Simulated scan of single mutants.
Amino acid sequence: MKSITVLAPAKLNLTLDITGVEPNGYHTLDMMMQTVNLYERVTLHKSETLRLKLPGSTVPANDNNTAVKAALAFFDYTGLLAGVDIVVRKSVPVRAGMAGGSADAAAVLVGLNELYGARLSQDELCSLGLKIGADVPFSILGGTARVRGIGDQITPMPNCPRCWFTVCMPQGGISTPQAYARYDVLGTDVRPNNDLAQKALFDGDLDALCAQMSNALEFSSQSPENKPIEAILRDCGALAALMTGSGAAVFGVFRDEKKAQAARAELKKHYPQSWVLHPVPRGAHSLGIK
């Protein structure tokens, strides 16, 4: 029982609305979130020290990395005098709005809990995760959920109706703090109705869900690629097309996998990072201890 591997999925924001600003400057949100089958693969080895490797990635392996922050938070909370060697094999693009860093943190918390037999509850793991990032609790839980507040109020929803997502990542990423700062100046006239989106999920109505899919941050992201990518997706038959999170990734929703694949083929003429993904019903999960 020396090592464990955890898969942690990326997420898409099916809706995103901003409902206010806390005194500390954090924005409160109301959004429908969905995990998808693009995974970070995180392997944890018992150790006496704390080290991080990200083979093939340009992401810095330093103390600011969410995986390191998660490990430090776990050991501080449990009081365990132990360490871990972390190897993160990244698949989720950086600065995409797909929660790759949050998925890494979630994988570390879930993995260390099992590797060291700490028996922390899911609520405890989510509380630790929230200190690292607003998307970490959802990355732990996964599935389809309505997420409110600062990411701390998570209500599981029925599974997303059967569909495929064609996801496209343009060359340039988006800074989340800058996107929110621009929102504070520019505002938005985009307001998804999450009550109707929730009803659509309970009814299993993909068309009604897609009718509510919008993102209050899309205008303030100021990404020049949003509209061209969305236009291609719609021309290929997407039921909805929008940015996820604070960007820069954009996705379209398709009822038919062949149409989703055709959209990906068209996008790849201009944008090499494109995928066809589908909803998955859980967040970070272990592949077992070795």
Rank of each mutant, 00 (worst) to 15 (best):
P156A: 09
R255C: 01
D184E: 15
W164R: 06
K227L: 11
C236V: 01
K199F: 04
R234Y: 05
F202H: 15
A211L: 05
N215W: 11
Q171E: 15
P156D: 02
T155S: 13
D195P: 00
R264C: 14
I174R: 14
L217Y: 10
M213C: 14
D256M: 02
E230N: 07
A197L: 05
G247F: 00
P228G: 13
N215T: 12
T176K: 09
L186A: 14
E257P: 01
K259P: 00
F254C: 01
C168V: 15
K227G: 02
R182M: 10
I154C: 09
N194R: 02
Q178K: 15
C210E: 06
C160S: 07
C168D: 13
C210G: 07
I154V: 12
A238H: 00
A260C: 05
G151M: 10
P161E: 10
R191T: 10
M169A: 12
M157A: 12
I232V: 15
A248R: 00
M213A: 06
G245H: 03
L206S: 03
C163M: 11
P192D: 11
I229M: 08
V250Y: 00
K259Q: 15
P156I: 03
F251M: 11
K199H: 04
A240I: 09
A181S: 15
S214P: 04
F254A: 00
K268H: 10
D195W: 04
D256F: 01
F165Q: 06
G247I: 01
G245V: 06
V190R: 15
N159K: 11
L239E: 09
P192T: 13
S220T: 11
R255G: 03
L242R: 05
M213I: 04
Y180H: 09
S221R: 03
